[in-house]
Design a binder for these strands. Structure first.
Length: 163
DNA sequence: GCCAACGTTGGC
DNA sequence: GCCAACGTTGGC
């Protein structure tokens, strides 16, 4: 069972937005970075855990645990003209049967943290201080997290490590 | 709002 | 294929 950190700007899509979705689940749309795309397409698996992280936020923090509930499949927003994430080139390629460019997984809200685990908290705790999200210039929106880091963040958030 | 870091684009 | 210019991300 792998663990991940999923970044989202709460002004665009927050934990509360996720919880308001039918079934508290959603397709993790709009990732337009090849490295993150590869993880979504090839590596994330149903049953994996994710830390939902609010970037560009006040506070910038991990706010809850999500579960990956569907493995990678083509991102519907890439071919949806009405979507902010529409990608004309990718849509044309997909329409010709040449395969999708962008991928999503489905995620489901599992447990909110009792308190947000803020960036300073992550920096100060030696169990989490090496997390990728804290590195300078770490822009990857889907990041691997170790099981130990995941457990520590859950503890800091005041919840039991889900299993 | 600033700006450093990063990824992508495009001229050559 | 190189690399400068550009746009975006995201912490502060």
């Amino acid at each position: 069972m792998a663990c991940w950190l999923l970044k989202s700007e709460p002004s665009v899509f927050s934990w509360d937005h996720l919880c308001a979705q039918p079934g508290r689940r959603t397709a993790w749309e709009g990732v337009r970075n090849y490295q993150a795309r590869n993880l979504l397409r090839d590596t994330l698996q149903p049953g994996d855990w994710g830390l939902f992280y609010h970037s560009n936020a006040d506070p910038t923090a991990a706010v809850g645990v999500v579960r990956i509930v569907r493995a990678g499949y083509p991102d519907p927003s890439a071919r949806d003209k009405k979507s902010d994430y529409y990608d004309a080139k990718a849509a044309a390629k997909e329409a010709k049967g040449l395969g999708a460019t962008w991928y999503v997984v489905d995620v489901e809200a599992h447990t909110p943290f009792l308190q947000p685990v803020t960036r300073p908290m992550l920096q100060e705790d030696k169990r989490t201080a090496d997390m990728m999200v804290l590195k300078r210039g770490a822009r990857l929106s889907v990041q691997p997290v170790t099981a130990a880091e995941f457990a520590a963040v859950c503890a800091l958030g005041g919840i039991k490590v889900p299993k």
